[in-house]
Structure formats: structure tokens, C-alpha cells
Design a protein around this nucleic acid. Structure first.
Length: 876
RNA sequence: GCGGGGAUAGCCAAGCCAGGUUAAAGGCGCAGGCUUCAGGAGCCUGUCCCGUAGGGGUUCGUGGGUUCAAAUCCCACUCCCCGCACCA
């Protein structure tokens, strides 16, 4: 029988047919409302895994739904290949082709890849194939990669625009750096550059300049500059060599080991003489903020390899300082309190030490004490006696004091890694380096922020709560470094030797997909993509004859492309994973509002949450990545789609488990069987239940439509599959019919087509429908076709049956069932269902009485318990 | 640090936005039954405790609060997860 043809075969067959018939390729059509949507394009960092699949299947369901609703849906895709991913993969497989496996590249293929670009092309093809196998209703014609040279021209145009608009600025910038490789490295969990990340990040110390009588500067490093008000002395390490150095035009006293770091961080450092800590001990220096003189003392817990090797002693707020000065300098040092914390009546350092019962400076719990104290103090506020900052929250005061120090010309910055040492993959130790004249995109610009917010105000976000979040993110964003020295990417058009950073080159690419359609079709050529061309197409600038003359593109073609752009733009929906919430989506908005006129500003954003496998994040490192192709081989597309869409709420993280996936596979098998069984069955007229089915179906259509419109994908498929199934089951139970009328089957399939399109196509075809369910129209919502009263009566019936079951189990009565109803409607409904009740509940005799009926049989007077929607019950 | 999300029965996981119809969907596991059997499987019932009349008791991280009524709203606390600018 044809129904038994292999599901796998069906799936690829339908994918091929969709492809051959070009149904997902969209052309402008002024008679249809358009819907331009896409998902944030995949990064080329290995073969796709099931986490990607979740992020793509959700938008695909939306695309399919919109298409069935009658929208002209443009749903293209591209590939994000800029950055160092392909470089890294290339290096790994060059070390050993076996490493390719971690990225989903079989050994024999890995060996053949001769360059990072080869890697990119290989993976691009593999990813495209996986996306097709996922049954995505994409238009593949405009596909483009961010390393294609036409794309580069487009991004260069964008950056010239940003520059013209004043959105690019130059600043100094610090970052982790490998001295041997001579380039910056990334500190991240993927360990793209470093051999072991260990959670390292860059810490910013504030250096506070304390001067002695000779004008020599003791630059104390601190993470909590607000405590400068509580400094009692400075600490040096007595076992370390200190040096007097000339830093730019000042004389600094620092630990020897910090010289090189200062140099790396962009200072001119000249060593003048070596000094031991003991010579320096006892010197008086002045606190630049309070003007107080304080002594320089020594303490052996001071780490000379951290920052400048000179630290402030704040015994009121630091357990180390407290303990050390108490036991060694108790006559000289008196703690000065700066921060107060609710519930602590002493100096916080003293409090924490007593609370934890810490013995002395060697106590291993001291680290925890520091941690706990810092946390408490960060929630505290500055004591009122301190001028300007009294009463201010600690965190706020920290920033304010930083600013004050800058104004007093008494501070500097020093960067350190939070975890040391960190090694580059080449083996060298990572340093912090300051880059002079780094280009930034100025997302801190308040006017630009204002415009971005205006765009967001009018946007719709899924989930709706993201909108508020977005506005906060816009406030919080600052300058973004936008160029780098290495990796694949677009050469920076304003300065040689830089390429544009991978996130900054992917903010308005949706506009470019209109162009790539024409490029890929060979209708225009790369060298015709001039700034005049982009200005004309995207912004309508310039005169057409002029642009045509300069680009050698015919006016007719220019007009066509311009019109097409104007048709599709703005973007209606941008979908992406939650990792894009704080970076990509805000950039996408910023760049749109900067470059495009208001009518082209984006309309909505859909965020989906992540996927983990067996409670663990998938990572190449852990080797627990479930590749999409493998999953597809194992389970088939519709099973995976079904599971991914229904297994968890789209706005919660998803936990993949094979056992659960199997359950969904079974559901689909049973679904197939059910349909087959129903098709074979005759269905007789049953006026009451036919009306009920019609009503409930109309209601389900409404629900599913409403859920999809709100982006509630899980609820939509839950209703479309399980609720409808229950309804059909109920109908079959309540009537003598084994099946339902064919039009319900068709309607049901339509409701499911956005989610599990392959199986729906197959059945659709079996039912003689042509050409595709994918292009069929969504069921009409018929509010008037819903008989709510009848639906409710059936609910009352079900509930009553449950009660009877419970009672009969409890009492063991199976003979006689009496039901007492209050309303005429219920009386009629139950009377008509007598035979059904008898069969279902196993009672030989079923009687239905009006509760008010004097003649009723009711020995226990159960009729008095009857209420509307809840008939009385008596059993024997 | 900044920002976001979460904590639900043996486990996984819905519900929370719009409080009552929620002892709380679904799945896994477990128990019993039916059917089938080459094999796997399929189907039904039960699964917090008590109960011979649809009932009662105790439950949704911890502690308070609002309300006639809270898993759902408010406050505080504890713990977990995630993003944050050279990984994209």
C-alpha cells in the first residue's frame, strides 16, 4: 500500500519537488501583500547542529504560515563567514585532518581543503544542503556569503556612509595580545586563539597617583577607586625590586615586573634606577583626593606582578589590609570608613573577619571573605561624612570618583587579565596591549540612540518583553571597535591594513539580498556595484541616467532593481537566537536608522531561546555536538521539526533527548495510521456531532491562527496536532463513525503544514490535491461557525462521565445510572446520549431525569445536588 | 560588574503575561491488564496521601504580603543558567 512508502523517501521527494517547482522563490507582486523575513544567517563555524535547526525551523513555520495566509513571502539566506572561524578550522585540520570531525568535516574531505576560503566554500555547501534537508522554505537564489567580493563592496559602501554621517570615531583601545603572533587574541569559551581560556577576561584597574615630597608618583592600582577616601597608607612588597621610571613626563615608582606591561599598554617607560622597598618605606605621600599625608609601608601579601605592584591600604574595607595593619602597624594605622552597609555596625572588614572567624592573614577562607565583603559593599553606600559622594550608592560613586580623579589629573588605567597566565595557541603568554587610533562605531551617540529608540517603539518583538529590554540595551551600548587586523572580512575602506569586524559587517545585509538575486543570475556584474549604484537602489539618490552611465547598467534594469527593493523593503521580520539580543539586533537597528529613511526601518524581531543536549551546552570542546545531518538520518525531518517546535516553549531553553525525539516519531507514525484508517472508513450523518465537529474545528482554526500570529509556536502546534487529534478521537467515540468527513482531514493537514510539511504534502497528494499544500490557502476563520453552547454541553458530558467513573470505582456500582439535570438543554443532551453513556460507562441501565421531576427515581435524593453544568448522579 | 532568564510531583517538562474551571497537560520511568508475537511493537488503566457518592488533606525553590481565592500578582532571600563588544 502506498501509505507505507518510506517516510524518508517521501521527505526528500517533496523537497525535490518544491525545488523543481520554484514555489519558494518570490518575485515582486503588487497585488499581494509582501512579507520579507529572514533568520540571522548561519556562521560558518562547522556543520550545522540541531541547535541551529531549532533557530531555523521556527522562522520557517512562520514563513509557511504567512505564505498560506496569502502573503508574498521573501525568505532568503546568506552565510556569515567573516572572522577567524574558518581560519581556526583550517589551522586545526592542517594540524591533523582528524580534527575536522569536531566541525562536522569528514577526514577525507578535510585533507583536501587547502585554505581558509576552501573551508568556507566547503562548509557553505554542506550547510546549504542541510538547510534543504530540513525542509526550509527558503529562496536560495539570492544566497551570498560575507566573504564574497560583491558583499565586500556593499559593506564598504555602508562604512563610507557611516563615516560621512559622523558615526565612526578613533580612540585608544586595549585588548589581549599575543606578542609572538603579533596580533590580538580572543578570550572566549570556544578557545579560538588561546590554549586554555579558564574564564579569563580583561580587568580594568584605576591607577591613583600618590605623590611624595620629591614629586615622585606612587601609582596605586585598585578595582575600587571609591575607597580612596579610606586609604591609610600604601603597600609595597618588601621582597620585590621596585624601580624609578620615567613614564611619559612623570616619575613613577613601580614594581620591576610592571614595566614591560606599562610599555605594552602604550606608555613610554624609561628605567632610571632600582630601589628596594625598604628604602621607600616610611616615605610620606599625599592622597590626591583628600590631601592627607599617608605613609608608604610594606606588606608581603602584596603581589608585585599584579598591575603596578603598588596598592592602597584600606583597612576599613579590605580584610587583608585590616589584618595586616592590625598585627603589624596597629599604632600607626587607624581604619577610615568610606562605605556603610545596612546591618553592619562596625567597619565592614572587621565585621566579615569576625563573622567568618578568620584567624590571620594565612587563613584560606580569606579569599571568600573578600568576595563576600565586596559583594555586600557594592550594594552599600558612601558614608555621609564624605563630601560630594556621601549617601551615594557604591557603584555610582565608583564611576563618579573615577571621573573626579581624571579631573584632578591624578589617575590612569592599567589592564590585567583576571586569570594569569593565559597562553596563546602558539605557546606565548598573552599580554594586554593598547592600540592607538582604533576605529569605533559610535553607538554612544545620544542622537543616534534616540533615533534607534524611535524605531524600536514602533516595532513588534517576539517575545513582547524583549522590546523593553532592547530599549535598555540601546541606552547601555557604547562605542564598538569595528575593525581588526586579521581574519576573513571586508577591507576597511578608510584606512589600509584593517578589515571590518565580523559583527559590524552584518547589520543591513538584508538590503543586499535584493541585489544578489541579480548578481547570481548574471544580470549585473560585480564591478558595477559602485557607491552611486547603492545610493540609487537603496536610497533613491542620483539621477538614473547618470547612474546608468557610470555603472553601464541599463536604466531599465536600474529601475527594476530599485522598484524591487522598494517593494520588499523594509524587513518585516528578523529572527535569531537569544545570543543576538544584546549585540546583533541592536546593531541591526542602529545601522538601519542611520542609513535608511524611516519607511525602510525594520518592523519586527523574533528571538528564540537556545538548545542544550541532555542538560549540557553542546560544544566542540565537550564533543557532545549533535550534528543536524546525523539527526536527520536518524529521525527524519518531520520528526525533528515536530520535536523542536513542540518539545519546549520557543522562549525557553530546549533540552534535547533522543528518547523524547523517539516519542515524536511515534506520534507521527500514529498520525499516519489514523489518517489511513479514517480514509478507509465511511462516515454517516450524525447531525448533532457533525455540528459539534464543525464548531470545534472552527475554534481550533481560530486558536492556531491566533497563536501563530503571536509567535506562540509551541502552543500553535500543540493545538493543531494534539487538541485537534483529541477532538477527532472524541467525535469517533461519540458517533458510530470511524472517520470524519474529508474536508476536516484537509483542514487539519493545513493547520499542520507549517510545522510538518512533508507528511502533510504526502497525504495532501494522496487525497488528490494539487499542486502543494505548501501553497494552499490557510483555513478561513469562521467565527459564526462555532456553536459555543454545544461545545460546552459536550464538556459537561465529559466531566459528568469522569465523575461517574470515579464513583463507580469507589462504590462498585455498575447496574443503574441516574442523572438529574437542571436545565432543559442538558436534559435533552444527556437524554440523547443515553446509549453512548451506557456503553462507555458499562451501566446496564441509564436514566436521565429533570431534577425537578416529581416522578423521578431517586432514592438518595441526589437531584438536590444537581446544579447547572453539573448534573446530580445516582448509582446502583 | 551590567543585563536577561529560570527554580513545578521519581525524572524531563507545560501552565504563570489576562488569579478561581489546576492535584496541576504531555512525555519518560514504574505498576496492572488486553492484544499480538519471527522480531520489535501496539492498545487500555493506574501512578501525592486518605476515602464504599462526585469528598477531604498536603503540594508548584525559601520566607513574608495582597485577595473571598495564588503555581499564577507584590516584596525579600537562596540557588542555577545565559549574553556583554575582537568567538559570532
Amino acid at each position: 500500500m502506498i501509505w507505507f512508502s518510506s517516510a524518508r523517501f517521501e521527505e526528500s521527494k517533496w523537497q525535490q519537488q518544491w525545488r523543481d517547482s520554484h514555489i519558494f522563490e518570490a518575485e515582486p507582486n503588487p497585488n499581494k501583500p509582501k512579507f520579507y523575513m529572514l533568520f540571522a544567517y548561519p556562521t560558518i563555524s562547522g556543520a550545522l547542529h540541531i541547535g541551529h535547526a531549532r533557530s531555523y525551523v521556527i522562522p520557517d513555520a512562520i514563513a509557511r504560515f504567512k505564505r498560506m495566509l496569502g502573503f508574498n513571502v521573501f525568505f532568503p539566506l546568506g552565510f556569515h563567514a567573516t572572522g577567524i572561524d574558518c581560519l581556526t578550522i583550517y589551522e586545526r585540520i592542517r594540524e591533523d585532518p582528524e580534527n575536522g570531525v569536531r566541525y562536522g568535516i569528514p577526514v577525507e574531505d578535510a585533507a583536501k581543503l587547502g585554505s581558509p576560503v576552501d573551508v568556507e566554500r566547503y562548509l557553505e555547501a554542506a550547510i546549504e544542503e542541510s538547510l534543504r534537508r530540513l525542509g526550509l522554505s527558503l529562496d536560495f537564489r539570492p544566497k551570498a556569503s560575507t566573504i564574497d567580493s560583491p558583499y565586500n563592496r556593499f559593506v564598504q559602501w555602508q562604512f563610507r556612509k557611516l563615516h560621512m554621517l559622523g558615526h565612526l570615531v578613533k580612540r585608544d583601545y586595549h585588548l589581549p595580545w599575543c606578542p609572538r603572533c603579533g596580533h590580538p587574541v580572543s578570550l572566549d569559551a570556544a578557545e579560538a586563539d588561546v590554549s586554555e581560556w579558564r574564564g579569563a577576561a580583561v580587568k580594568e584597574y584605576t591607577v591613583i597617583k600618590f605623590k611624595d615630597e620629591e614629586g615622585r608618583i606612587f601609582p596605586a592600582s585598585t578595582l575600587r577607586p571609591e575607597t580612596v577616601y579610606g586609604v591609610t597608607n600604601l603597600w609595597l612588597n618588601p621582597q620585590t625590586d621596585y624601580v624609578k621610571v620615567k613614564v611619559n613626563k612623570e616619575i613613577w615608582i613601580i614594581s620591576k615586573s610592571s614595566c614591560q606591561k606599562l610599555h605594552d599598554q602604550g606608555k613610554h617607560v624609561k628605567t632610571l634606577e632600582e630601589l628596594s622597598a625598604s628604602i621607600l618605606e616610611g616615605l610620606k605621600v599625599v592622597n590626591p583626593v583628600t590631601g592627607r599625608f599617608i605613609p608608604v609601608l610594606v606588606a608581603d601579601f602584596v603581589n608585585p606582578d599584579e598591575a603596578t605592584g603598588v596598592v592602597m591600604s584600606v583597612p576599613a574595607h579590605d580584610p587583608y589590609d585590616y589584618l595586616y595593619s592590625k598585627s603589624n602597624y596597629h599604632k600607626i594605622v587607624e581604619p577610615i570608613q568610606v562605605i556603610e552597609v545596612e546591618g553592619i555596625d562596625r567597619t565592614p572588614a572587621e565585621y566579615i573577619i569576625e563573622k567568618l572567624g578568620i584567624e590571620g592573614i594565612g587563613d584560606p577562607r580569606l579569599k571568600d571573605a573578600v568576595k563576600e565583603l565586596y559583594k555586600k559593599e557594592d550594594r552599600g553606600s558612601i558614608v555621609s561624612s564624605i563630601e560630594r559622594f556621601g549617601g551615594m550608592k557604591t557603584i555610582k560613586a565608583r564611576e563618579a570618583v573615577k571621573k573626579l580623579l581624571v579631573d584632578l589629573n591624578a589617575s590612569d588605567k592599567f589592564f590585567e587579565l583576571s586569570v594569569k597566565p593565559i597562553y596563546c595557541r602558539c605557546g606565548a603568554e598573552i599580554k594586554i596591549k593598547v592600540i592607538k587610533g582604533q576605529w569605533f562605531i559610535d553607538y554612544a551617540d545620544p542622537n543616534w540612540k534616540k533615533k534607534a529608540k524611535r524605531c524600536i517603539e514602533r516595532m513588534e518583538t517576539f517575545p513582547p518583553t524583549y522590546k523593553r529590554n532592547l530599549l535598555e540595551i540601546i541606552d547601555w551600548l557604547a562605542e564598538r571597535p569595528c575593525v581588526r587586523r586579521r581574519g576573513l572580512g571586508t577591507p576597511f575602506p578608510l584606512e589600509e591594513g584593517w578589515i571590518i569586524e565580523p559583527l559590524s559587517d552584518s547589520t543591513i545585509y538584508m538590503a543586499f539580498f535584493i541585489i544578489t538575486k541579480y548578481l547570481n543570475a548574471g544580470l549585473i556584474q560585480e564591478d558595477q556595484l559602485t557607491d552611486e549604484f547603492f545610493d540609487f537602489i537603496f536610497l533613491g539618490h542620483g539621477s538614473i541616467d547618470d547612474v546608468s552611465a557610470k555603472t553601464r547598467i541599463t536604466e531599465e534594469m536600474l529601475r527594476k532593481i530599485r522598484r524591487e527593493f522598494d517593494y520588499w523593503y523594509p524587513l518585516d521580520l528578523n529572527a535569531g537566537g537569544k545570543e543576538h539580543k544584546t549585540v546583533h539586533f541592536p546593531f541591526f537597528i542602529f545601522n538601519h536608522v542611520a542609513i535608511f529613511p524611516e519607511k525602510y526601518w525594520p518592523k519586527s524581531i523574533f528571538v528564540n531561546w537556545h538548545l542544550v543536549a541532555y542538560g549540557q551546552k553542546m560544544s566542540k570542546h565537550l564533543g557532545n555536538v549533535i550534528f543536524l545531518d546525523e539527526a536527520l538520518d536518524k529521525w527524519g525531518v518531520d520528526t525533528i521539526r515536530f520535536y523542536l517546535l513542540h518539545g519546549s516553549n520557543q522562549w525557553r531553553d530546549f533540552d534535547w533527548r533522543d528518547e523524547e525525539c523517539r516519542v515524536y516519531q511515534k506520534h507521527l507514525e500514529r498520525f499516519r495510521n489514523l489518517i489511513r484508517e479514517m480514509m478507509k472508513a465511511e462516515s454517516a450523518e450524525d447531525r448533532l456531532m457533525d455540528t459539534w465537529l464543525e464548531s470545534i474545528f472552527n475554534m481550533r482554526v481560530q486558536e492556531v491562527t491566533c497563536f501563530l500570529e503571536k509567535g506562540e509556536i509551541r502552543r500553535a502546534i500543540d493545538t493543531a496536532f494534539f487538541r485537534v487529534w483529541n477532538d477527532i478521537d472524541w467525535y469517533r467515540r461519540r458517533t458510530s463513525n470511524r472517520g470524519v468527513k474529508i474536508r476536516y482531514v484537509k483542514k487539519w493537514l493545513k493547520l499542520l503544514a507549517p510545522f510538518i510539511p512533508h507528511i502533510c504534502e504526502e497525504i495532501w497528494y494522496m487525497l488528490g490535491e494539487r499542486p502543494f499544500i505548501s501553497t494552499a490557502s490557510w483555513p478561513k476563520i469562521r467565527k459564526e461557525g462555532v456553536d459555543m453552547r454545544l461545545i460546552e454541553l459536550e464538556e459537561i458530558l465529559k466531566k459528568t462521565m469522569d465523575d461517574v467513573k470515579q464513583l463507580s470505582q469507589l462504590t462498585g456500582c455498575r447496574e443503574k445510572l441516574c442523572i438529574y439535570t437542571v436545565s432543559e438543554e442538558e436534559f435533552g443532551h444527556f437524554t440523547a446520549a443515553k446509549e453512548f453513556l451506557s456503553e462507555e460507562l458499562g451501566f446496564t441501565e441509564v436514566n436521565v431525569f429533570r431534577a425537578s421531576d416529581e416522578e423521578r427515581y431517586d432514592p438518595a435524593n441526589r437531584a438536590k445536588r444537581a446544579r447547572p453544568k453539573r448534573p446530580g448522579i445516582y448509582l446502583e
